[in-house]
Amino acid sequence: MKKAILDRIEDGKAVFLIEPNHTEWLVNQEELDSSIKEGDVVTISETNEIMKHPQETDEMKKRIAEKLERLRGKN
């Protein structure tokens, strides 16, 4: 099982960044569950089933927001 983040959707393709190297993996947008949005953390099974992880997504977004706040405080 691989962990990934949905980076973007462009030209009908969902572009996932696979951890840890951020290797791109493309999926046709129509094959993607409509609840999965850009920035979501997912796992990809051996059969390419994509499962959303809302708690990990929330934790990641919180860490990013905290880093941005610290950076803003330095300026």
Results as ranks from 00 to 15, higher is better:
33 D>Y: 05
27 V>E: 07
54 P>T: 02
68 L>M: 03
58 D>F: 05
25 W>H: 09
6 L>C: 08
26 L>R: 12
52 K>L: 15
63 R>C: 01
43 T>C: 07
8 R>N: 10
14 A>I: 01
2 K>W: 06
36 I>F: 07
58 D>L: 12
37 K>D: 09
71 L>H: 02
73 G>W: 02
25 W>S: 11
18 I>S: 04
71 L>Y: 08
56 E>Q: 15
48 N>H: 13
15 V>F: 08
22 H>R: 13
9 I>G: 09
6 L>V: 02
33 D>P: 01
46 E>H: 07
22 H>S: 15
41 V>I: 15
43 T>L: 07
71 L>T: 00
62 K>H: 00
49 E>I: 03
70 R>P: 00
22 H>V: 03
60 M>Y: 04
17 L>D: 02
75 N>I: 15
18 I>R: 06
6 L>T: 04
26 L>M: 09
9 I>M: 14
52 K>E: 02
73 G>I: 04
58 D>M: 11
71 L>W: 04
18 I>K: 06
55 Q>L: 13
20 P>A: 07
53 H>W: 04
7 D>C: 05
70 R>M: 09
27 V>K: 08
5 I>H: 00
70 R>I: 00
29 Q>R: 13
62 K>D: 05
13 K>Q: 14
42 V>Q: 08
39 G>V: 00
67 K>R: 02
15 V>W: 11
18 I>E: 09
15 V>R: 10
60 M>P: 02
1 M>Q: 10
60 M>G: 00
61 K>G: 02
15 V>G: 10
4 A>S: 10
2 K>Y: 12
22 H>A: 14
29 Q>F: 11
13 K>E: 10
17 L>Q: 06
5 I>K: 09
24 E>K: 10
60 M>A: 12
34 S>N: 05
41 V>G: 02
